[in-house]
């Protein structure tokens, strides 16, 4: 796929297949086009040229938290429960327990810290147990313990057969990944050292 903002070409020729049961990372410098790529994969942005194919439900966690400050955490879960047509909220409760913010269920989102808002941002992407997870800088604002627990959760999801794609500007914790792609000059290059 290709994408350009007017004359500025951001993605020159991306061809990526995300296999089931894979924990995949994409890293690149600021402005390399990582978020643009994820917006296209999630259907938020139409590529200038190319096709995206999803094999079932997916979850998308945008880079900047997209929440409603006037609603509580519980009201967000109820809203998205209706959107995803879920009978119950066990998955959401499980993610909240892992990320450690169950106690904030009745707090209004506008008064939460940046890290807790991000935890809810991630939970809304995971709560319908999607086959594919598209996560854009998902751990920004997390404290160290939450950061570790997030990676454990990502690995467990991968082991359970989900495909997890994490985009970040930092190439930390690459040993946790099955595949690492570097986005540079609008092209994706596989990092053989990590992906071997």
């Amino acid at each position: 796929m290709r994408h350009a903002y007017r004359r500025r070409v951001v993605l020159r020729g991306i061809d990526l297949r995300l296999r089931p049961g894979t924990l995949c990372g994409i890293v690149g410098e600021n402005g390399a086009g990582k978020s643009t790529l994820l917006k296209i994969l999630s259907g938020e942005l139409r590529p200038t040229r190319g096709t995206v194919r999803h094999s079932g439900p997916f979850g998308y966690c945008p880079q900047h938290v997209v929440l409603n400050d006037t609603l509580t955490v519980r009201q967000h879960l109820e809203f998205f429960q209706r959107a995803y047509r879920l009978a119950e909220l066990r998955c959401a409760e499980e993610v909240m327990a892992v990320l450690g913010f169950t106690g904030y269920a009745d707090e209004r989102v506008g008064v939460l810290s940046g890290g807790t808002r991000q935890k809810l941002n991630v939970t809304l992407a995971l709560m319908h147990d999607p086959r594919v997870l598209l996560l854009d800088e998902p751990y920004q604002g997390f404290d160290w313990d939450t950061y570790q627990r997030f990676w454990d959760l990502a690995a467990r999801l991968r082991d359970a057969g989900r495909s997890v794609l994490i985009v970040s500007h930092l190439a930390y914790d690459t040993e946790r990944l099955d595949e690492l792609w570097r986005l540079d000059g609008g092209l994706l290059r596989l990092d053989e050292a990590v992906s071997a």
């Binding site: 429960q81 047509r85 066990r90 998955c91 959401a92 147990d129 959760l153 999801l157 359970a160 057969g161």
Partner: peptide
């Protein structure tokens, strides 16, 4: 495909669809 939201997140899934 609607989800139930009731199964565990970590239960195995059919790989292909």
């Amino acid at each position: 495909e609607p989800g139930s939201g009731g199964s565990s997140l970590l239960s195995p899934r059919r790989a292909d669809v």
